[in-house]
Design a binder for these strands. Structure first.
Lengths: 191, 191, 191, 191
DNA sequence: CATGAATGAGCTTTCATTCAT
DNA sequence: GATGAATGAAAGCTCATTCAT
């Protein structure tokens, strides 16, 4: 009769994910999250002590999934090329998968110290993974190379999230493009 | 008797810039902007019809300066290398110059359609300039190359804005790094 | 056209006095006070930064009036008997005059430190006035005698405030009674 | 197996006494009382139908103890002097004994009709006991004399409850003082 | 043009109480 | 009897915006 453990916690996080992702933090009301989750407003506060904390928990879950998936994909790759592809694929596919929730990537309550901390921690961890991958491949200044590669990928975020005609093919094209550019530079693209 | 035309308009925009940049859009109150500008709250509404519009005007002014400066710098550059350097220098120096106002780059009121439009327009214009520069240098897929280069630069935003120990030398290093990586790829960095 | 200075401040305090006095602090809502005062809820907060502060301001005004009136009455009295009568008259007449607002004397938000402070200050000032009066009349242990006299008066508060049949004559009787008892003790009342 | 009858009832009342007495009625949460009593929140409602009723039961128990003790002490006294001393001693010693729970004497939920009724009933009973004692000693207007004596004692409540340096000696001094003043009036205290 | 007192819709959060287990 | 997760009404306070002066 009773549901799985963590049932309501998940229910709330899922509802928050949809609403924060669709309307943004400030435009989403706690009462809406409760409605969306099918529970009472007060129940939210049994699981999360404030709106900020709820947002943070939701974001944390997302970060963990992102990093977990990344590890998986890197394990299955061997050569530098393959690994770069894995990172690019994962990064862009992630955005492609959350096209419906573009507000996840804007309008966080950035005055919340704890949240900012967490965002930075995620960033650091992500970059460290990519950097150590590059380092193993014998690339100098791995930190900066890693950051740059991530930047090259992240610039496509906007296209993916806001362009409704963005296709799977467009995605693949950008993956290949980023890997090649990172690897060879733009010289190869000159006439 | 009255000061230069646009006097108060500028006063307000400067005050808004400082406050939005320091505390973010939602945490900044219209009354604070009025105080900071040294005028009455009601006066704000003689110049801007809403908080969103004020934010937009402030942002627009910033965008125009950014793009104007970019044009200047590109005019003074000839070779591709020089031009890439100009773009990188300009991009990162811009962030370095507004270190004190990090909130300018987060927490915009992204539910405002007009504002989102403007942000996208800025992005398109910026990218188009870089792309056309690359095109003139004979680089294929100039759009995507331009976007990637901008992404490589933009990834350093966080470091610049949040790391208080970030020096002018760090800045120069990143400029060179980005240009080289974009030009040659990471191959040159292998042992 | 414009009203007297302090107009709205007085309006609010009067409304608060009636409502707090009728229903008590916790049962009175800020919105009710606004309604009673004929102004908007937000306007309250232009004059008082919180419900507690409003309560305190209201109480302070009352205290000041009480003590001011006491001074007046004591000035007009000469002999000890007359002065005791003045204090008793003033004390009990005060309660009689605010019969309609009995909750003024119960249910203060006593977790508010500043308010507690003020209540004690009032008590101290009141007692000091009576004590110094007794001292001038050559009575030893004036402090304690003053306190006791006030206690003898205050015990009638309940009757006055809650007994609807309490008359002006009952009042006068108690005034005389208290003065005589304080002066002569109960011995004179023995058969 | 189960403990003495009334076990939990007592447990709850004791917990309520400590918390209401420390923080006041409104600032004490039902959940805190449950925690303090070491039982579940819901269990409270098996014994008391509401927060008000719980407060009332707690108060009632206290009143009964107070009056019971008073009877005991009066029985052991013979002369008027002795009996006055007994009343004074009991009254002030009671406050002295509950110094740690000062909020018991402020901030009752006075909108509760039944509670107000009970408070008045206690007052009436207490006063009736003292009055009948005075009557037996042949004192006229025993009601009013009794009330006045109680008032003289009660005025020291504040000192006792809020002055942390208040000593046992201070207590004794006030007991003697009140009895003497009630008996002889202030005349004896004149130079 | 400029002002700033006034507005009131709207939000987060609390907590006494219930009831299925 | 005992539990404690769930409820939802209710209230203090904020702040963008207006408009009489």
């Amino acid at each position: 009769m009773s549901a799985a453990p963590g049932d309501k916690w998940t229910l709330i996080l899922d509802a928050a994910y949809r609403l924060f992702g669709t309307k943004g933090f400030y435009e989403t009301k706690m009462s809406e999250i409760a409605d969306e989750a099918g529970i009472a407003k007060g129940t939210l506060y049994l699981y999360f002590s404030s709106k900020e904390e709820l947002f943070m928990a939701m974001t944390k879950r997302d970060h963990d999934r992102f990093l977990g998936k990344l590890d998986q994909m890197l394990e299955q790759s061997e050569s530098l090329q393959e690994q770069l592809r894995a990172v690019a694929d994962h990064h862009l596919t992630y955005y492609f998968g959350v096209k419906r929730y573009p507000r996840l990537f804007f309008q966080a309550p950035n005055n919340d110290q704890a949240l900012m901390e967490m965002m930075h921690a995620f960033r650091r961890t992500y970059m460290a993974k990519v950097a150590s991958m590059l380092e193993r491949a014998g690339i100098e200044e791995a930190q900066m190379h890693g950051a740059s590669f991530i930047g090259m990928l992240d610039v496509f975020k906007m296209d993916i999230l806001t362009n409704n005609n963005f296709t799977e093919a467009d995605l693949q094209h950008r993956i290949q493009f980023a890997v090649r550019l990172f690897h060879d530079g733009c010289r190869g693209a000159r006439d």
